[in-house]
């Protein structure tokens, strides 16, 4: 156990020393890894922000039904009865015009506008949730309601929300594709630096073998190098994201302020940073492992 610990400590110290001896080569490799990682991670951050923004929107597909301005209580009762009679609805609720105005005037930026009104320009409305949310069904229900008396407008306004959800899904898939591709690039970068290292330390490897070093002992410093290099690359990627979010957030908040929103870009959370670093380290290790095994076999067969 002590031997094992000592070997690991030795390997770690030797790795850091070796990195220090070739600072430029190390720096470039780390930057390459960092940039490669920052792309999928950046896209992930972007998607998360959009998802957060979209969370305020109706998640469930809804149909908005607006009554004529001159509709009276009797008309409203008729519509309510007809809606209750339908079996293809999951639910519905009535929004009286007074309540709609009160809600609107509470929203920042619009209150000045509503204060100047003498009349309530808003109609009575219904929010309807269909039992089945597919576009065809929605359109059928909307068309039926459109023919009822005293109905001014029927808006199947959930469609774009569905489209956004689909787009976000596409974005998420894109993150995976990009992450896999750049992950492979990271393994290649790591493997290549390790391969060069092995070439320069070939003699040491051969001599160590002759005096009783196990494969594990020979592999260890290279694996450490891969892990430490990946870890530093992950830190660089994180740094790139932090700086990017800081730079972009100024513009994003300005834009959001124009829409009276207090939206702010957020970067990676603590757990996400931990995951990023863990993935970077794991891919660095994998690259090193592949390169070491291949190179050792080559040295052996010589």
């Amino acid at each position: 156990m002590m031997t094992w610990l000592a070997h690991h400590r030795q390997a770690l110290i030797a790795t850091l020393a070796r990195m220090g001896k070739a600072p430029y080569a190390t720096l470039f490799a780390i930057i390459a890894i960092g940039v490669a990682l920052s792309l999928p991670a950046g896209l992930f951050v972007l998607l998360q922000n959009i998802t957060r923004l979209a969370a305020d929107l109706p998640a469930q597909p809804e149909i908005s039904v607006f009554m004529q301005q001159n509709a009276n209580d009797a008309d409203i009762t008729v519509i309510r009865q007809r809606l209750q009679a339908r079996t293809d609805l999951a639910g519905f609720h009535f929004v009286p015009r007074a309540q709609a105005l009160a809600a609107l005037s509470k929203q920042a930026g619009v209150s000045d506008l509503t204060a100047g009104l003498t009349d309530n320009p808003l109609p009575d409305a219904w929010i309807i949730v269909p039992a089945q949310a597919d576009a065809q069904n929605m359109a059928r229900i909307a068309a039926a309601i459109r023919g009822w008396p005293q109905i001014a407008e029927v808006r199947d306004d959930s469609q774009w929300a569905q489209r956004l959800t689909a787009l976000l899904g596409l974005g998420r898939d894109l993150v995976w594709v990009l992450a896999s591709l750049l992950g492979a690039a990271l393994v290649a970068v790591s493997g290549n630096t390790i391969r060069l290292q092995i070439l320069t330390r070939r003699e040491e490897i051969e001599v160590s073998r002759l005096i009783g070093a196990t494969d594990r002992y020979i592999r260890r410093p290279f694996l450490y190098f891969g892990v430490v290099q990946g870890l530093f690359g992950g830190l660089i990627a994180w740094l790139i994201l932090v700086v990017s979010v800081l730079l972009l957030d100024q513009q994003a908040s300005k834009l959001a302020a124009l829409y009276a929103s207090s939206f702010h870009l957020t970067g990676l959370g603590l757990i996400e940073v931990a995951i990023l670093l863990a993935i970077a380290a794991a891919l660095g290790w994998l690259g090193a492992y592949l390169a070491v095994n291949r190179s050792l076999r080559l040295i052996e067969s010589r």
Binding site: T3, W4, A6, H7, Q10, V207, S208, I211, G212, A213
Partner: peptide, 8 residues
């Protein structure tokens, strides 16, 4: 020292 390090 190398052989001794290897042998732990």
């Amino acid at each position: 020292l190398l052989p001794l390090q290897i042998a732990g």
